[in-house]
Nucleic acid binder design. Structure first.
Length: 282
DNA sequence: AGTCTACCCTGCCTGC
DNA sequence: TGCAGGCAGGGTAGAC
């Protein structure tokens, strides 16, 4: 469940359901789901068994669960990962990869991931901020995000603006959907060169990024299908508020021009040909 | 150093 | 009906 609003929705659900609970057992059903945990599954299990989860934190699209040991479980959902709370007697999901049970015998935490791009790992001493995600920039919902530093770094780059929005070391949490939505709101084509953006335009773009992420969090995220759900298996409803993403051929909500679809970085980009004209060739 | 392409996976949809 | 190809919201290693 990819972008920041979906991950934040999961974080809130997890915090409510697992904070304060003690892990009884850990099962790893697929090695690829802990491939970032280099010491392997036996070590993964030993580090977690008997530990108490203190909280659930997030930076960008990454989650981590600080433990009473000072370590943390670091998680990324990749393209298709889910963290679900399930009663013990619920049938195993087809793509169940990792299961946690708790000493209170209550609902289990299950990591389910069809494509296995996501995964979990134990970060030693990572309760505050795991080393594994130290390279990830703060996200724009973080109170310590530095707007002017972002604007300066963005304008200092020699790349296209959509590419920059997707660069998690510059600004984290933005993925393909919310990048397209923010660019639509800012009336910028994703291929606009970052070094040609004025400061006011860059600031406005950041404000739109923050707005669209905030609105999507309130809506519980964006779901097109059952692959993207909260910890209770429920879908968010921000898809009803999308202006660009997935709307090829449908009228722009601002000017009525049919939304266009273009290939970019091996994925689709949606924009309004009139509101977001392509820049002249660089 | 900074930027960008190729690749990692499974499942579903489309067109032949 | 079967099959090939394209597509999907992610990150990263390594090539330039």
């Amino acid at each position: 469940m990819p972008e920041l609003p979906e991950v934040e929705t999961v974080r809130q659900g997890l915090a409510k359901w697992v904070a304060g609970r003690t892990i009884a057992t850990v099962e790893v059903h697929h090695p690829r789901s802990i491939r970032r945990h280099l010491p392997g599954d036996a070590h993964f299990i030993a580090m977690l068994t008997g530990r108490t989860v203190l909280d659930v934190s997030r930076r960008g699209k990454y989650l981590w669960l600080p433990l009473d040991s000072g370590d943390a479980i670091v998680g990324h959902l990749g393209m298709s990962g889910q963290l679900l709370m399930q009663p013990a007697d619920a049938e195993d999901e087809k793509h169940l990869r990792i299961r946690f049970t708790f000493t209170d015998g209550g609902p289990q935490l299950r990591f389910v991931d069809q494509r296995t791009f996501g995964g979990l790992a134990v970060s030693e001493g990572g309760a505050e901020l795991p080393d594994e995600i130290a390279h990830i920039a703060r996200d724009p919902m973080d109170t310590l995000f530095d707007d002017e530093a972002f604007v300066a770094r963005l304008r200092g780059k020699h790349t296209e603006v959509k590419r920059a929005l997707l660069d998690q070391t510059l600004i984290s949490g933005v993925g393909n959907i919310y990048a397209d939505e923010a660019l639509w709101r800012a009336r910028l084509h994703g291929a606009r060169p970052t070094d040609a953006l004025t400061r006011p335009v860059a600031r406005r773009l950041l404000a739109h990024v923050r707005d669209v992420l905030g609105e999507a969090i309130v809506a519980g995220g964006t779901s097109f299908d059952e692959l993207y759900v909260n910890v209770n298996g429920e879908s968010g409803y921000f898809d009803r508020s999308l202006n660009a993403y997935g709307r090829e051929g449908e009228p722009c909500h601002r000017c009525g021009t049919p939304i266009r679809r273009e290939q970019f970085m091996n994925r689709s980009s949606f924009s309004c040909p009139r509101c977001q004209p392509r820049p002249r060739t660089r």
